[in-house]
Simulated scan of single mutants.
Amino acid sequence: MRRTADPAWLFLATTAVLAAGTNAKWIVFMPRLVDDLQLEPYQLALLGTALELSGIIGEIPTGAVADLISRRLSIIASFVIMGPILALAGVFESFWLIALTQVGWGLAWTLHSGADVAWLTDELRSPDRVDRLLISRAKVQLAANALGVPIALALVATTTRTTAIVVAGASISAWGLVLAMTMPETGFERTARAAGAEFKRIVGVGTRLTARTRPLRLLAISSLFYGLGSGVVDHLDLARLVEVGIPSDVDEVFLYGALALVQAAAGIVLIRLIERRLIDVPAARVLSLLMLLAGVAIAVTAGANVGWAIFVGLVMQEALRMTAEPFITMIANSHSESDVRATMLSFMSQAYAGGEILSGVFLGVVASVAGIGTAFAIGAVIVVGSSLISSRI
């Protein structure tokens, strides 16, 4: 008989494993792309675009499948599939094969995205407790990001960059097996209607709800612009540091690891500050403030000519972005209906991913033609625009 774990604990533990594993991978993966494989800025942007495009294609179908069949099975499948794909990203050297792993990773991620919060909401049946857990998840995610740094650095120091990425992938798949043995699903009610008709109904209801509900509509638009403006940082943060100049005796893996570690610490401090000072402020107002400050941070990164100032800008932008995530989820979750909850949350992820796709195409070209700093400056203006939109939610 399968022994089930407490849903709240399992939700946070799953967040920790995924954050530590993926951050350990990215800390090694990005320097590998820039340093070992020497990819151009437009190639880095294209890889990000491939990842986000696969996500935007998969978000709605996988969200609807989770609402139709099982949120639990969707999450388990995501972890089991993501691991091998992540490992292959560390093995391949061909740009196009690496791009394929990004597509696979994006599709596998959508099986988890949205389904986790929908599963938790149905299991707990307490919106206030779910909101508190979303804030806790952000802190756990940041702490796990920090934990991923020494793990990645230790693996690189004792093995190779490829081995470090493979180990990160194996850890994620292993957690999928743990979920298969311990994850309950008591709050989800599977429909008795025909699967095809119910799939169309779920997607249709989610689409109409987003279009007709003002907070959801504005949230989707602001998420789109936020992804468009901040996507350039996700794709070209290390390249921006390299552009200004990194001392020859500094290992880029250790530099990227230090950046991730400080970003996590800054994010935890920021969330604690919000809990103490802004806990009673509406989520939309907090989100608008975080987006505005993120725009300022990107502007600092764009205009700085010294490495330490760019480092500070990158730290603040990522800390603000990760702090904004639970507030986006809170707003979407509070306006969603139970039977289409995973689909609705997927809509918001899709909006952000759509912005990142446009960023990879548009700002990636700008970075190659006019310089990475110029692309960052345009991104900063767009993120400030997303703040103005979210202030009207």
Score class of each variant (00 low, 15 high):
Gly90Tyr: 00
Ile75Val: 13
His112Val: 12
Phe79Asn: 06
Gly83Arg: 01
Ile69Asn: 04
Leu88Thr: 13
Val65Thr: 05
Ser78Pro: 02
Val91Asp: 11
Leu107Tyr: 08
Ser70Asp: 03
Ser126His: 10
Asp67Pro: 04
Val91Ala: 11
Arg132Asp: 13
Phe92Thr: 07
Arg72Asp: 04
Ala77Met: 12
Gln102Tyr: 15
Ser113Lys: 08
Trp119Leu: 11
Ile56Cys: 10
Val130Lys: 00
Asp128Ser: 15
Thr62Tyr: 06
Leu111Met: 10
Leu107His: 11
Gly63Pro: 03
Gly55Asn: 09
Asp131Arg: 13
Thr101Tyr: 11
Leu134Gly: 12
Leu73Ile: 11
Arg125Asn: 15
Val91His: 08
Leu88Met: 15
Ala99Lys: 08
Met82Asn: 08
Glu59Val: 07
Ile98Thr: 01
Asp131Met: 11
His112Ile: 09
Leu120Ile: 07
Ser74Asp: 07
His112Met: 12
Leu100Gln: 14
Glu59Arg: 14
Leu100Glu: 04
Gly55Lys: 06
Leu88Ile: 12
Leu100His: 09
Phe95Glu: 02
Val65Met: 14
Leu68Tyr: 02
Trp105Gln: 10
Arg71Tyr: 11
Glu93Lys: 15
Leu133Phe: 07
Trp105Met: 14
Ile56Lys: 08
Ile69His: 06
Leu107Gln: 12
Pro84Lys: 01
Asp128Ala: 14
Leu107Thr: 10
Gly63Cys: 08
Gly58Phe: 08
Thr110Glu: 13
Pro127Leu: 05
Ala108His: 05
Arg71Ser: 10
Leu73His: 09
Arg129Trp: 13
Leu97Ser: 04
Ile76Lys: 02
Ala99Tyr: 03
Ala89Phe: 10
Gln102Asp: 09
Ala99Cys: 05
Gly63Phe: 01
Trp119Arg: 05
Asp67Arg: 01
Arg125Glu: 15
Gln102Cys: 12
Ile85His: 13
Arg132Gly: 14
Gly63Val: 00
Ile60Tyr: 01
Leu88Tyr: 08
Phe92Asp: 04
Leu120Lys: 00
Val65Phe: 11
Trp105Cys: 10
Arg71Trp: 08
Ala64Phe: 01
Gly83Leu: 03
Ile76Asp: 03
Ile75Lys: 02
Asp67Asn: 05
Thr62Asp: 10
Trp96Gln: 03
Ile81Arg: 03
Leu88Glu: 12
Val80Ser: 03
Asp128Glu: 15
Ile75Asn: 12
Trp119Ile: 10
Gly106His: 00
Ile76Ser: 06
Val65Glu: 01
Thr121Arg: 10
Phe95Arg: 01
Ala64Cys: 00
Leu86Ala: 12
Ala66Gln: 02
Ile98Ser: 01
Val117Lys: 08
Leu107Gly: 04
Pro61Thr: 01
